[in-house]
């Protein structure tokens, strides 16, 4: 599903349309199907407000631009939000705080039961099992446990299983790696790539972690004060170190190293992923000596 926002504006307080109250201002952005899209920006820059528009949690306000997700026109008054939400999954920050059911199985099945009521019990179980196994947990071992007796990492996985169980085409994640240790982070990103390779066609990742962006995203957008500052590949975005610092952001380690190496006269032109950077740096240094 292609996502297209045009001049999207959002004001939190309904009464005053004052510019200072605007969480979003004339945001125009196109996200093609198949992208692994990163959204970065300071706290309060409007990233979360923007992504919550994508599945209709926040409705497009009157005369405030247009937004379409696939065949869904979110500007229209009548929009089948249920169908939309089953196809655009959303993982919130600290998703483990949304668990509520008595067993892991019931919790994961919650979305399925809401969206696809006609499903047979066997089909439901098959899908729940698939979702739990996709997030890397053992179904038989965990299905009848209470979600509250799991460890923090397991809870988060179960919560994510509860979102992907409906096999959404677009998956939006708001700070999904916050509070995870390095291994947990890496495992989590691997999981996202696995999903991206199967039924999830588009992944939209809201994050503060520039390394996650450079390592995984095909393109990214910088939000600043409710506006889009720039859109492009990580390489393009992170080439302007000074501007990013000015916006209160940072650049990934690889971009930083590349910059420092350039000062030493070693020109490494990688795509900023760790493996590519390592390869090209090695080549540049060895090549330089020769």
């Amino acid at each position: 599903m292609r996502i297209e926002a045009k001049d999207l504006t959002f004001t939190y307080s309904k009464k005053s349309k004052a510019i200072s109250n605007r969480a979003l201002e004339n945001v125009s952005l196109c996200i093609e199907e198949g992208e692994f899209f990163g959204i970065i920006g300071q706290t309060g820059s409007g990233k979360t407000t923007f992504v919550q528009h994508l599945n209709g949690l926040i409705r497009v306000q009157k005369d405030s631009g247009s937004l379409s997700v696939g065949e869904f026109d979110l500007t229209a008054k009548k929009c089948d939000l249920k169908a939309l939400r089953s196809r655009v999954g959303m993982v919130f920050q600290y998703p483990e705080y949304q668990l509520f059911a008595e067993t892991v199985k019931d919790d994961v099945a919650f979305g399925l039961r809401n969206f696809k009521k006609e499903l047979s019990l066997e089909e439901e179980e098959r899908r729940v099992k698939l979702a739990i196994e996709t997030v890397g947990l053992n179904y038989e071992e965990i299905k009848d446990k209470s979600p509250f007796e799991l460890s923090g990492g397991q809870k988060r996985r179960v919560a994510i299983a509860g979102v992907i169980v409906t096999e959404p085409e677009v998956l939006v994640l708001d700070e999904p790696v916050a509070g995870l240790d390095p291994v947990g982070k890496r495992d989590f990103m691997k999981l996202l790539h696995r999903l991206h390779a199967s039924f999830v066609k588009t992944i939209i990742l809201v994050t503060h972690d520039m390394n996650v962006v450079s390592e995984n995203c095909t393109r990214c957008a910088i939000f600043s004060h409710g506006k889009i500052h720039s859109v492009g590949s990580p390489k393009e975005i992170f080439s302007n170190y000074e501007q990013l610092i000015e916006l209160g952001l940072d650049i990934p380690v690889t971009a930083y190293l590349e910059r420092e190496l350039k000062k030493l006269g070693i020109d490494v032109d990688s795509d900023l992923t760790e493996s590519d950077f390592a390869d090209k740096t090695a080549k540049a240094i060895v090549g330089g000596k020769q």
């Binding site: 919550q52 599945n55 949690l57 249920k82 939400r85 089953s86 999954g89 959303m90 919130f92 920050q93 998703p95 705080y97 949304q98 919650f110 979305g111 809401n114 969206f115 509860g162 979102v163 409906t166």
Partner: peptide
Amino acid sequence: DETDRIIKAQKARGAN
């Protein structure tokens, strides 16, 4: 705030 967030999270999972 918390309530708002949880409501949104469950709405995203189809709660009505």
